[in-house]
Amino acid sequence: MQESIDSTRLGANRTGMQTSPVLGKAMLDNTEIDLVEPTMDPQPLAEVRADYIRDADPLGSVPPPATAKGMAKSGMKMMTGNRPQAFVDKLAERLAYERGGTRLYDAAIVKFAEYSDELQGVTVADLEQIRDEEADHAALIMECIEELGADPTAQTPSADLVGIESMGLMQAITDPRTNLAQTLHALLLAELGDEAGWETLIAFAEQIGQSEMVTRFREAEQHEQEHVFKVRGWYESLTLETGELV
């Protein structure tokens, strides 16, 4: 099995032109490269993109509460502001992100166990704690969506989009070829996004007068700040260490 240091060993990387100078020269001698200034004409591409943006439909919609009963007991009517569904959409985004984040840690824990001797003083239990807190946050958000009379099983537009945004992180973490340091880098990106997401959600909850949710969300945000601190520390120490090892 490889170690984290293996990902930066010198080897037969063939992607650069200096690996094969003869072929590389041949690539250059048949092009019309302006050696001083590249010739770019981004306008036609931008125009097509703009045309499609103007014509585009949204990803989808936020579903209304399913029943009149749901509406009646809905905490939505207690909210200030005209569009409570915008808050439901951001709650659903957090729910999707926290569920996805839990699965990222499920995969990362397996990798950590295989590299467990690389990070001194860190145990599987440390990662499991973060994983469980992500799952707790998902449960918290689910409760909040239900309290508002909305559907916690629905995938709203923002929930859909964080799934797309996270696809690369999932690919990076689940690839058996990525080592612990590389896995931690992807986790760090996930945690930074998570922290920013909670900040926005808290601001939103304050704006619409959901003070009880604000209190609960602040606790979650505190966890996320701790996650960022820990993961960043692990990532940095392992990465800097690979520059010293021989």
Binding site: Q18, L28, I33, P38, M40, D41
Partner: peptide, 16 residues
């Protein structure tokens, strides 16, 4: 449009 392949993408400021 206007694309000429350059080593390191057309954003590279000088040819390798």
């Amino acid at each position: 449009a206007g694309y000429v392949w350059r080593p390191g993408t057309e954003l590279s400021r000088k040819v390798v």
